[in-house]
Design a binder for these strands. Structure first.
Length: 473
DNA sequence: CTATGGCACGGATT
DNA sequence: AATCCGTGCCATAG
């Protein structure tokens, strides 16, 4: 049985190989576009609307996991059940920015293109007159991602009720980047919280903290907040950590704090994930469910009409039809290939990184694409492509690039963050001191490297951390 | 003199 | 072959 699977994954022809490779490096957003393109262009391929299991072709309800095919994978991996999920209730935006684009250093939100980018996402849900209003709002967006003009004044300008403007602005704010065109950082962050709530449970007081206490948060005056909300200070600290890790006050910049350390929050990418990891039954004690989202609206098939046409047609016409048929066949095969590779890869990754998924950044194991390639008996570049551009949602709701699983320094960086968080604010640790501590813990690192990690995490140098404390203004 | 950031080199990774 | 990453050296600021 091992044999059979091996044969199925091994490409047979060069055309097969080339197409599989190009499909492999696409994320779901791109894949949808590609499928649409092929559907339009090739009459031999058709889409059937009901959802079927991509492996055994059994009919499924929307969102249902194939009961048959999720089972066999269980044997070789107790920690995670990896399966392909043919959801079509997932709305993908075609032009979401991939993680890599967010990470690119020279990527700056382009003030010319951002408005268009936003408009395209909401265009189809609006009437003509509403589009005009939306355009008016979006075109005013400043480089931080805000539109300060009040709804009331916009309403007056267009002679429409305020509620209508509110509705439209709300739609804009829910588009990517989330919170864009809000009037203030607070408003943007509230919207981001709402969106996060769709996948994660959050205490209700988070909203209040964002709305009323941003000033105190940036001053690190947790006591004041704790007092006003009548909550223990530890809760507040957790909340602040969550807020600073998951929300970004300037939707146009997509980063916290000042522009010089853009790297700091690159991990917060809001787009639809290609893979979703959850605990089965939402119980952290149970196995991980790894859901690889496959974005067909239904399955792809060779069109039966086309098949009949081919059989009934005369000899010379058959010559014309054959290439289409072959291409369609090939495409379907390549998609299966892609799915299979993704599944095999995810099985290994999740097994190897269970601790990281369950317990957090600190427990990440070192892993290189080369190792994985060897184990799966595929070429390194196959893994590279399979990892590229994909995003994965962790059980806690965070969406991270799949490449995070290969981050060599993440473990050390979180260790570093903890050290800094615990340090005495009056005598901050210098880089060399931190290096010493880390060396004692068994990490072999140079002082210079600490400085780099600090910058990555957006932590200020020691002298800055000191003065910050007793300087209110 | 100490702490830190910029530049650049070489080895590993993709 | 291109890119990323850790590190050493040096200039600068306090």
């Amino acid at each position: 049985m091992y044999q059979r699977q091996y044969l199925r994954t091994e490409p047979q022809t060069t055309a097969h190989l080339a197409q599989t490779m190009s499909l492999l490096k696409m994320n779901n957003g791109e894949l949808i576009e590609e499928i649409e393109r092929i559907l339009n262009e090739n009459p031999a391929l058709e889409k059937i609307e009901e959802i079927r299991c991509p492996q055994c072709n059994r009919k499924l309800f929307p969102g249902q996991i194939c009961p048959k095919c999720s089972q066999p994978n269980r044997g070789d991996n107790d920690d995670a059940i990896v399966f392909l999920s043919p959801r079509n209730d997932f709305q993908y935006q075609k032009d979401v920015l991939t993680d890599d684009e967010y990470q690119m250093e020279d990527f700056t939100p382009d003030t010319v293109e951002l408005p268009e980018y936003i408009l395209r996402q909401i265009m189809f849900d609006l009437t003509d007159s509403e589009r005009e209003i939306a355009a008016h709002i979006v075109l005013q967006v400043d480089e931080d991602g805000f539109v300060p003009e009040k709804n009331a004044s916009i309403a007056q300008y267009f002679h429409v009720p305020i509620s209508k403007v509110e509705l439209i602005r709300n739609m804009i704010m829910h588009a990517d980047p989330i919170g864009v065109c809000a009037t203030s950082p607070e408003e943007a962050m509230i919207v981001q919280l709402d969106i996060l709530r769709e996948t994660v449970e959050l205490p209700p007081y988070y909203n209040q903290m964002v709305r009323d206490h941003i000033a105190s948060i940036s001053k690190k005056d947790y006591k004041k907040i704790a007092k006003e909300l009548e909550l223990p200070e530890s809760d507040i600290k957790n909340a602040v950590r969550f807020i600073s890790e998951n929300l970004y006050p300037y939707p146009g910049r997509a980063s916290w704090g000042h522009s010089n350390n853009d790297q700091a929050t690159q991990k917060n990418v809001y787009s639809n994930p290609d893979i979703i990891v959850t605990y089965s039954n939402n119980d952290p004690g149970q196995a991980l469910m790894v859901e690889i989202i496959i974005p067909y609206g239904g399955n792809l098939r060779i069109s039966s009409i086309y098949k009949n046409a081919l059989n009934e047609s005369v000899e010379e016409k058959r010559e014309d039809l054959k290439p289409d048929l072959d291409r369609a066949n090939l495409f379907i095969k390549c998609l299966q290939q892609r799915n299979n590779t993704m599944r095999r890869m995810l099985e290994k990754i999740t097994k190897y990184q269970v601790e990281f998924i369950r317990k957090g950044d600190k427990f990440i194991h070192p892993l290189t694409r080369a190792d994985l390639a060897e184990e799966l008996e595929v070429h390194e570049s196959t893994i590279s492509r399979a990892v590229a551009n994909k995003s994965l949602q962790l059980p806690d709701g965070k969406i991270v690039p799949l490449s995070k699983f290969f981050d060599r320094s993440l473990g050390i960086r979180t260790e570093l963050k903890e050290i800094v968080a615990k340090e005495n604010q009056n005598k901050p640790l210098s880089d060399s001191k931190i290096a010493e501590i880390l060396n004692q813990k068994g990490y072999d690192l140079a002082r210079r490297t600490i400085a780099k990690y600090r910058a990555m995490e957006g932590i200020d140098p020691a002298y800055m951390r000191k003065t910050q404390y007793n300087e209110p203004k």
